[in-house]
Design a protein around this nucleic acid. Structure first.
Length: 393
DNA sequence: TCTGGGGTCCTAGGACCC
DNA sequence: TCTGGGGTCCTAGGACCC
């Protein structure tokens, strides 16, 4: 989907079309003022501006007009405000986003049933068997999907048609927004090889930097590199994968069903907190995170036995601790208890900017959703032993 | 006044088992 | 005094993606 979060807000506020708009940060009191008013009546000048933002939020999505100023996804809002102070800033409306996400996926899947979900705004569709040949048949199908999605939602999307997921993903970026691009096996050298290695889905900032340092800039450079040499620098699996990717090879299937591995909740504080000095505040947040993740598990019908915490310190370094229980749980108190034990094992001398709670090793709960699980609190003896040994009883 | 929140996957060492 | 070969699970950290 093209600039998905921002495009959804433009449906609500069409008067903002063509303007630099940025989505991100939490809901603020300025945003409440907009709610409940006749939406189309709100003057462009009345919207909150990026320059008035104070906090630690990042950009989720920027409109194409905003991107012209050099702002984009994942950039801190404070930094973005320097580049484009006049941009309009709107919070993420998760419910609305999920609604449109479900809608476009349902429409696409009606046309092509073999669908892989890649998050709120992305999917892979397997139309290997399309009539009319993969190239021209694919183009017809892509147009059909775009039209069906636009008619139903008012939103545009970009489609890449290619022999595999790796190339399709790259192709989908070629003609954004509202574009279609077809990349066949013969187009590798002309369309793929000139691109930066960073365009390969799976090569991020670190690998890209390392490749650059080794004199490899484009995918063509990567394709020409000796596979043994790549393995020597990146390890057996990554080296071989890089070589195959550069040659356009990818045999991953379109995965239509998958089970979650973990669920988590985390929060970044408005100001850094200290474990001792801000004990009460930290404790309250910690308990709330446990309750939220427990509610998520129960609502979705999962239990998990690996309970973990995540800390991010004022220097942005992160630490994780986890503990595996004998039996899986979705109970807030049990999670809080185990997470509390994890917290005791983590360094707490530096100030914290983030606290998170995660439950992993998930399995489906054989219970109806929304049932409350019984929790047996630790006995005084168990609590004593825990305090003495640091083990869980 | 840098740097969200929710995920997946990989690596690597150690414990433990056969 | 020296010391196997697999395998799985657990834990911590980190890269990457949307």
């Amino acid at each position: 989907m093209d600039a998905f979060y921002a495009s959804v807000e433009l449906l609500r506020y069409p008067q903002l079309k063509g303007l630099p708009v940025v989505i991100g940060g939490g809901r603020r009191k300025e945003d409440e003022a907009l709610a409940g008013r006749a939406l189309a009546e709100i003057g462009v000048d009345e919207f909150p501006k990026l320059q008035d933002y104070v906090g630690r939020g990042v950009i989720t999505t920027a409109t194409y007009a905003a991107r012209q100023f050099g702002v984009g996804s994942a950039m801190g809002l404070m930094k973005a405000a320097k580049l484009c102070p006049q941009a309009i800033l709107l919070p993420v409306d998760f419910e609305e986003i999920r609604r449109y996400s479900r809608q476009f996926k349902a429409i696409a899947q009606e046309i092509v049933p073999l669908m892989e979900d890649r998050g709120v705004d992305e999917i892979y569709l397997d139309f290997t068997e399309v009539p009319g040949g993969q190239r021209e048949g694919g183009r017809v199908l892509a147009r059909l999907i775009q039209k069906a999605v636009l008619d139903a939602t008012g939103l545009t999307c970009s489609v890449g048609v290619a022999p595999n997921k790796l190339i399709a993903k790259m192709a989908s970026e070629f003609n954004k927004p509202n574009g279609i691009s077809i990349v066949g096996p013969d187009d590798l050298q002309t369309l793929i090889w000139p691109l930066s290695c960073r365009k390969i889905n799976g090569i991020g900032p670190k690998a890209s930097e390392k490749l650059t340092a080794l004199g490899i800039h484009t995918i063509g450079d990567l394709a020409a590199a000796d596979p043994q040499w790549l393995v020597a620098h990146f390890g057996k699996a990554t080296g071989a994968w890089m070589h195959a990717s550069a040659h356009g090879r990818d045999d991953r299937p379109v995965v239509t069903e998958s089970e979650p591995v973990s669920m988590s909740r985390e929060t970044t504080f408005d100001r850094d907190l200290h474990a001792v000095h801000d004990r009460a505040e930290l404790g309250a947040v910690f308990t709330r995170l446990c309750e939220q993740v427990a509610a998520d598990l129960q609502r979705k019908g999962y239990v998990g036995k690996t309970i973990g915490i995540k800390l991010r310190y004022d220097d942005f370094k992160a630490a994780t601790r986890d503990h595996t229980l004998a039996a899986p749980t979705a109970d807030a108190k049990a999670i809080r208890h185990a997470a509390g034990q994890c917290l005791k094992r983590a360094p707490l001398d530096k100030r914290l900017r983030l606290l998170g709670v995660r439950v992993g090793a998930l399995v489906r709960a054989n219970l109806e959703p929304n049932t409350t699980l019984a929790y047996i609190p630790p006995t005084p003896v168990a609590m004593y032993l825990e305090a003495q040994t640091g083990w869980l009883f």
